[in-house]
């Protein structure tokens, strides 16, 4: 999957802006021989990292280069156009009376087309958040990412979407937890209009209102 990091350009670019810690390399331990183990009749041949790194195991490597061009779809395409204009759009179903975002072409509950597009506020409430010190490929981060599920104003209860919290002063768990909490009011921080491309990253992050 090493190449996926290059092909999945946006996450790689995002991550590269964050300072990475130097990975700690554990001291090499004498690995001992590679031996089949049987415990209570259960079989296996456990390998240690040192067996692999020390060339004691024959390995085959492959680094696939994968490229995709995804269609955004009818509903998300319009959502992205809204983001380019600095608007967060939702959709409403008049049968179950839900207003939801991210938008979808049909109501998955009522299984009928959605009835109307709704312009929502670019503000909301933190439903939940995390403080993450690991990248998508398990590299350590010194400055954590703060993903959150954000309930956008104007949607039905417990309808949120995933985005990031940013522009906080603190970088530690305790410090960040003093600045944000579940229930915190947040607002979107947009890229300058000229730099928007019609992407979820047109919102840089949300920040306490």
């Amino acid at each position: 999957m090493a190449r996926e990091r290059r092909s999945a350009r946006r996450p790689a670019a995002k991550v590269s802006r964050l300072r990475k810690k130097t990975a700690k390399v554990p001291p090499q331990q004498a690995p001992g021989p590679i031996e089949p183990v049987v415990r209570d009749g259960l079989r296996g041949t456990p390998l240690r990292d040192a067996h692999v790194q020390g060339g004691m195991v024959s390995l085959e490597r492959w680094e696939p280069k994968l490229e995709y061009r995804w269609d955004t779809g009818v509903a998300i395409g319009r959502f992205l156009e809204g983001l380019r204009e600095g608007k967060i759009l939702g959709v409403r179903c008049d049968r179950c009376h839900r207003t939801v975002t991210p938008p979808r072409a049909f109501c998955e509950w009522c299984f009928k087309p959605m009835d109307a597009w709704v312009e929502l506020a670019d503000a909301g409430t933190i439903n939940t958040f995390s403080i993450c010190f690991i990248t998508w490929d398990m590299q350590p981060l010194e400055v954590p990412q703060i993903p959150a599920v954000i309930e956008i104003d104007g949607t039905s209860p417990r309808v949120g979407f995933l985005h990031l919290i940013g522009a906080l002063r603190a970088h530690t768990v305790d410090g960040i937890r003093k600045e944000i909490r579940v229930g915190q009011r947040v607002r979107a921080v947009w890229k300058p209009a000229a730099e928007r491309t019609g992407a979820i990253t047109d919102i840089l992050h949300f920040t306490p209102a």
């Binding site: 992205l80 958040f129 995390s130 403080i131 993450c132 690991i134 979820i200």
Partner: peptide, 16 residues
Amino acid sequence: TIERPLGPNLLWIFAL
């Protein structure tokens, strides 16, 4: 389209 550009990982889901 709407999640991968944020650089998500599986730990997020559980932590959230």
